[in-house]
Design a protein around this nucleic acid. Structure first.
Lengths: 172, 172
DNA sequence: AGCAAACCTGACTTTTATGTCAAGTATTAT
DNA sequence: ATAATACTTGACATAAAAGTCAGGTTTGCT
């Protein structure tokens, strides 16, 4: 169970943009140097985020990258989904697809155990998504300790929310 | 953020053993057929679990694999940690190692953002570990719906526990 | 116009994860 | 003893992810 490199580094890149938001666009080179990764890799990652419309780019000599929206309106969940190769889900297992066609005959599920395991990932993914969707890039522009507190608070609220089966807005 | 193939298939294999616990050892071939994966792959996965002392094997003509302990005493957390290549952690990011040597000079953290992100994974991993460590193989030998209920309950209890900062035993 | 900064893109290389193969060892039934 | 079954092991092949390269386009400045 791991966070992919693309997710980790992509998130770091967009976080740099959040940090310098409301100033001139940040160049790829600057980000590459700050994060200690190659310019080419930065380009690739920001291209993914641009296609997801979370980042906009300005070409030409005074160009660079910037957030497409305010840091407080972009959630970690959005960013992670954009960077995740698999579709829309937070936790992905190799073939969660397999059980997707219970179109009548259940015979496909020779893999009895697949169906015992699925609900585990389902619940965990729901929680993770709940948390990530309520943490914004702005929240992450704090000290490590402050971020920790925010995450813990959101985690609690997510839990409470999901316990009630509802989709209550979290205010902070 | 994904569950690796090794984790998913390894878990399925050991779940087969849990299912047939208290009978004769289950042969690799049987598991391979049930799960629709190759015998060689099953061998590899069960070898990993055997080295983690979660599974024992019996060689020879009446041989096979069996759980090393009771299904109710083996947790999902143990199994996942055994199957995870990375050390002991549930969520792993590419280089969580980097910030491990804050041996005095903080200069290493040019990656300011790494330190903003870390607490997110920390909190999420703690929750995941809390849940997985309280779900046993026996819990998974139920219908999909029953498993769902168990996981949701454990999830709630884990949250409550972690909110109090303690390490309270969950009874069920 | 011409140049330099900076993004764009797809192909390519490297690395890591997956999965298979083959040769070997142990055990039991006959 | 021998044969059949089944686990053991490390090397190998394949696929996917990670990261690099090279050639291209856009824009601002002089």
């Amino acid at each position: 169970m791991k966070v992919t490199a693309q997710e980790e580094y992509g998130l770091r890149c967009i976080l740099q943009l959040a940090r310098y938001h409301s100033r001139d666009p940040v160049t790829g080179r600057q980000i590459a140097e700050s994060e200690g990764i190659s310019l080419d890799y930065v380009s690739k990652l920001l291209m993914i985020l641009r296609r997801a419309e979370l980042v906009r780019s300005v070409r030409g000599i005074r160009g660079g990258y910037a957030l497409a929206r305010e840091p407080r309106s972009i959630t970690l969940g959005e960013v992670m989904r954009a960077l995740s190769s698999e579709e829309g889900i937070v936790i992905t297992s190799p073939d969660s697809h397999m059980c997707d066609h219970f179109s009548g005959h259940l015979e496909a599920c020779t893999h009895l155990n697949a169906c015992a395991i699925r609900p585990v990932w389902t619940v965990l993914a729901r929680y993770l998504a709940g948390v990530l969707d309520h943490i914004t890039l702005m929240d992450l522009l704090q000290t490590e300790h402050q971020v920790l507190e925010v995450v813990e608070q959101v985690s609690q609220e997510t839990m409470r929310d999901q316990a009630m089966g509802g989709t209550i807005q979290i205010g902070r």
